[in-house]
Nucleic acid binder design. Sequence first.
DNA 1: TATTGTTATACTCTATAACTATA
DNA 2: TATAGTTATAGAGTATAACAATA
Lengths: 169, 169
Amino acid sequence: MVDRGRYEELARQLSVIGAVKRGMARALPQDCPPGSAIVLTVLDRHGAMRMSRLAELLAIDMSVTSRHVAHVAERGWIERSPDPADKRSRILRLTPAGEERLEHMSERYVETLAHFLGDWSDDEVDQLCVLLARLRDSFGDCRAQSVRLPHPPTVSPATPLTSTTRTSG
Amino acid sequence: MVDRGRYEELARQLSVIGAVKRGMARALPQDCPPGSAIVLTVLDRHGAMRMSRLAELLAIDMSVTSRHVAHVAERGWIERSPDPADKRSRILRLTPAGEERLEHMSERYVETLAHFLGDWSDDEVDQLCVLLARLRDSFGDCRAQSVRLPHPPTVSPATPLTSTTRTSG
DNA sequence: TATTGTTATACTCTATAACTATA
DNA sequence: TATAGTTATAGAGTATAACAATA
């Protein structure tokens, strides 16, 4: 068990890391806000999937995911084909235009990191990647509705422990 | 110089780490949104300071900092005493009530981390803290107005390189 | 009746611009 | 004239709740 001081330090570091994320976001093309960027990134990384799966991977509510997806679909960066197994669902898939967009985006990200992280070694970047991946993994699906935190903010007494993707009943 | 693939991987990891930050934010007391929490944290960590310094440490515009500060000041968690050296400024300082609030907040953060990071070792937490601190440091003051990024989004041709805290002239 | 996904509404954070007071 | 800070307004992200279509 890690001691309290270490956790406090980690909490501080996580609080301040938002500045880095904003710095990265500024490098994005104008028609591609962070919400679109992450949808394209995850679809490229994990392949075609349904809304609910995407929402789970992003750890955001499906209502929010729906808006992000609508935005990139309007621009032709993904296609939504009917799911033969379930007519309520559609399969999300990156289009060639989306891949192109992602490539452009990726170039800007890389340039930005090269700009700020010029003096980092390969090993340091690798280490940070590994630890961030592990951190994300440890948190798992930590969305409001799907997990019981130690201190449920406003939740009424006995909330069921279901691991659904929904926002309400 | 780090190669492109490593930077791409880091960019992906940073994109997805927002889920962790949201998970942490959910642990905060209801009357203490993340913006307030970070102000209290930084004032505790770095001691009393002026608005402009706080904005620089948070890497957000002073207009935003001003609102966060107003919020915590209204609740009596910080005090704003006149700066004898410059009548335009005030010195921000944590009050005993603010320290108490911070302690409460910190407990919740620690519980949340203990909940999700139960199987991490001391060394792993330390390593992540060190790398995050270094990352934040490498980005420095990366606010919109204060730094030239490789791809200035909408900025007109010759923007001066001044490192000010301002939002407009 | 339960689940997938969409839409409407509200809240938080951030940035830009205009403004006041002081240097 | 320039700087410290405040406020008004707008844009993006997210959560909750209500809804439609399908399982």
